[in-house]
């Protein structure tokens, strides 16, 4: 009897919570995990900031494997969550299936373009931000050799690498850029041990600044760089605080702002194609107390000058994804 009452009570609670869910926004994190200190965490921070500022609630789920994407999307859409934000390029396939089935739900995909009337696609000009940190890396390097460690080997990450290499060459045409990718599967987003190994390999080749664009794998890169006494560059979130005085800067990609804006705009948000670049502060480099001793005024002045000329169009950074080639780096 008591069991039945509890069960019924539970069912009632479920009914209430199910109705409360309606029209709450939802976010789906990609493989790599919510607390990767990087891409997914930036998305999570944006969602949390929205919840704190508005007092609203949101639904979230971390994927267990790549085959679950469509189910996660449908689940939230069926439950009435709106808008639904996806952090990651890999949702494109699933979203183009699901979006037409739920025309009244607004979807937001980050890092990829899906052409549907109810989808907002937010993409970032990572090559521009990477160009700036590449300049800083070249300035800070004493061995004239800098490293790049990517996560999964996809055009998007090559775009980071290519922008970075162009920045390095712009500041120091004689510098060498060593680039490595962690892997070819989503597991590469969360493999700090491999990240650490690659860092050591790059150090043995002479690199004294490494840039990690690898999600959770970057944690291992930054750790090893700090342990081995070389500089590192973080990505997506501001990672300067992870090893104060050892992280040169972080290539900020304001995924948090994209999520925050999407949640604030709410159901029926403006759809279409949104580019976040240097001009609208979608990407940039991080300066705070943790890295202030590492970055000279002169360095900042040079980078700011380059930033201004990229924004004005004087200086154009080649986008790897436009033609899948890179003038400054061979993959």
């Amino acid at each position: 009897m008591t069991f039945m009452t509890k069960l019924l009570g539970g069912a009632a609670a479920l009914a209430i919570s199910a109705s409360a869910v309606a029209a709450d926004p939802a976010i789906i994190f990609d493989l790599g995990g919510k607390f990767d200190k990087s891409f997914n965490e930036a998305a999570f921070n944006g969602a949390t900031r929205w919840a704190e500022e508005t007092g609203g609630e949101f639904r979230e789920v971390e994927l267990q494997n790549e085959a679950q994407r469509e189910q996660a999307l449908r689940r939230f859409a069926e439950a009435g969550s709106n808008p639904i934000v996806m952090a990651g390029f890999a949702f494109a396939g699933a979203l183009s299936e699901v979006a037409p089935d739920y025309p009244d739900t607004s979807f937001v995909i980050i890092d990829m373009v899906v052409d549907a009337p109810n989808v907002r696609s937010v993409v970032f000009n990572e090559h521009e931000g990477s160009f700036l940190v590449g300049m800083m890396a070249a300035e800070a390097s004493e061995s004239d050799t800098v490293g790049f460690i990517g996560g999964m080997d996809i055009p998007l990450i090559r775009r980071f690498a290519c922008g970075y290499a162009q920045g390095v060459k712009a500041a120091n045409p004689d510098a060498t850029v060593i680039a490595n990718m962690t892997g070819t599967t989503p597991a590469a987003w969360n493999d700090p041990v491999k990240g650490s190994e690659l860092t050591k390999a790059q150090i043995s080749q002479g690199a004294d600044v490494v840039y990690a664009a690898a999600g959770g794998t970057g944690v291992g890169v930054l750790q090893t760089a700090a342990d081995e006494g070389i500089l590192s560059i973080g990505v997506d979130s501001n990672q300067n605080y992870l090893h104060p005085g050892k992280v040169l800067t972080s290539m900020m990609k304001r995924v948090d702002n994209a999520v925050f804006t999407a949640f604030s705009d709410g159901p029926g948000l403006e759809t279409g194609f949104q580019v976040q670049g240097l001009a609208n502060e979608g990407v940039g480099y991080a300066m705070d107390d943790n890295n202030a001793p590492l970055v000279s005024e002169e360095m900042v002045a040079k980078v700011e000058a380059a930033k201004a000329s990229i924004i004005s169009g004087e200086l154009s950074v080649h986008d790897y994804m436009s033609d899948e080639t890179c003038p400054a780096l061979d993959f």
Binding site: F89, A90, A92, G93, M112, D153, I154, P155, L156, T184, T185, E324
Partner: peptide, 17 residues
């Protein structure tokens, strides 16, 4: 994984499928 990344994946697509 090898086949998806080398041959089966359409050119320009990021997701390995």
């Amino acid at each position: 994984i090898y086949l998806l990344n080398n041959g089966l994946k359409p050119v320009g697509q990021m997701e390995s499928s």
